[in-house]
């Protein structure tokens, strides 16, 4: 056996356990799920899909989830980029510690975190009171059970993911590129826009996709902070699976959510890819 053949055999051997695990625990269940979603009427039918796509209520749930994903992504991007940029460019040895601090929300379980938000969002909770005091909302307003409340609570936990992704990418961008742009006459903001943000595109896309897909599939926070009036995909899937035991329908909703997430990822990637081609 020559050495290259041996090397590929060793590589295959090393990959095999992970590949097997992946196939067993991910690919196979996905196929089962897909199969299940076509199980009504048996043995093969599209009734579950027709029921979802033909019903404005369920389409509204879908739109709600997509809007949630979009809003959380935008909030995380707008808040996360400046933070990630400052941390990446900070010339202090505390930067590492500060980065660690931003990940704190990830250390707390989703249920505990959501309960904390609920306490703040109740009519008498601190945040709701602040808003009431500002006069922007009616006196009995509460953030609990509102779309904005869910966006805030989700953005809080997903922000670290955005920051970590962007931080790594911005750290990889030579700082002298910004200096070069400035010495050529670009104001710092212009340099940021023309150079750093263009080059951080990959990270922006990765972070946004991560945050978007985690938002549309989030369950605990939407169901707890959003309450009974929040109709999101993951909550609906949970209801159909565990409360109403309509597995084919739940599988169909899951498949639709998966397909849409994939489509969003591909479109987003294409758009950013085109942008990069243009820049060439």
């Amino acid at each position: 056996m020559n050495s290259s053949a041996r090397r590929s055999l060793v590589a295959a051997g090393l990959l095999a356990p992970a590949a097997l695990l992946f196939a067993l625990l991910f690919v196979w269940p996905q196929f089962r799920l897909l199969g299940l979603s076509f199980g009504n009427p048996a043995p093969f039918g599209l009734a579950s899909y027709e029921r979802f796509l033909g019903d404005s209520y369920y389409l509204g749930v879908l739109a709600n989830s997509l809007a949630l994903g979009a809003c959380v992504t935008v909030v995380c991007l707008v808040l996360g980029f400046p933070l990630a940029f400052l941390l990446a460019r900070a010339e202090t040895r505390w930067a590492g510690l500060l980065l660690l601090l931003t990940t704190f929300p990830l250390w707390v379980s989703a249920v505990v975190r959501s309960f904390a938000w609920m306490v703040l969002f109740y009519r008498g909770g601190t945040i709701s009171r602040l808003l009431q005091g500002s006069g922007l909302v009616p006196p009995d307003f509460q953030l609990l059970g509102t779309f904005s409340g869910v966006v805030i609570a989700l953005a809080q936990v997903l922000l670290p993911i955005m920051i970590l992704t962007l931080y790594a990418v911005i750290r990889g961008i030579d700082r002298d590129l910004e200096h070069a742009a400035m010495s050529l006459g670009a104001a710092p903001v212009v340099a940021l826009w023309l150079v750093t943000i263009r080059l951080a595109r990959g990270g922006i896309m990765a972070g946004s996709l991560l945050v978007f897909s985690l938002s549309v599939s989030a369950f605990a926070t939407p169901s707890m902070v959003g309450g009974a009036r929040a109709h999101f995909m993951a909550v609906t899937i949970y209801e159909q699976t565990l409360e109403l035991l309509d597995w084919p329908f739940a599988a169909a909703i899951s498949a639709i959510l998966l397909a849409i997430s994939l489509a969003v990822a591909l479109t987003y990637g294409r758009l950013l890819g085109e942008g990069r081609e243009e820049a060439r």
Partner: peptide, 22 residues
């Protein structure tokens, strides 16, 4: 005076060419 208003032409050790521009 901020860097972008100084009218200096700088050549960097790493060249710092914009990788996304021709």
């Amino acid at each position: 005076v901020p860097a972008h208003k100084r009218d200096m032409g700088m050549v960097f050790q790493s060249y710092a060419l914009f990788p996304h521009l021709s």
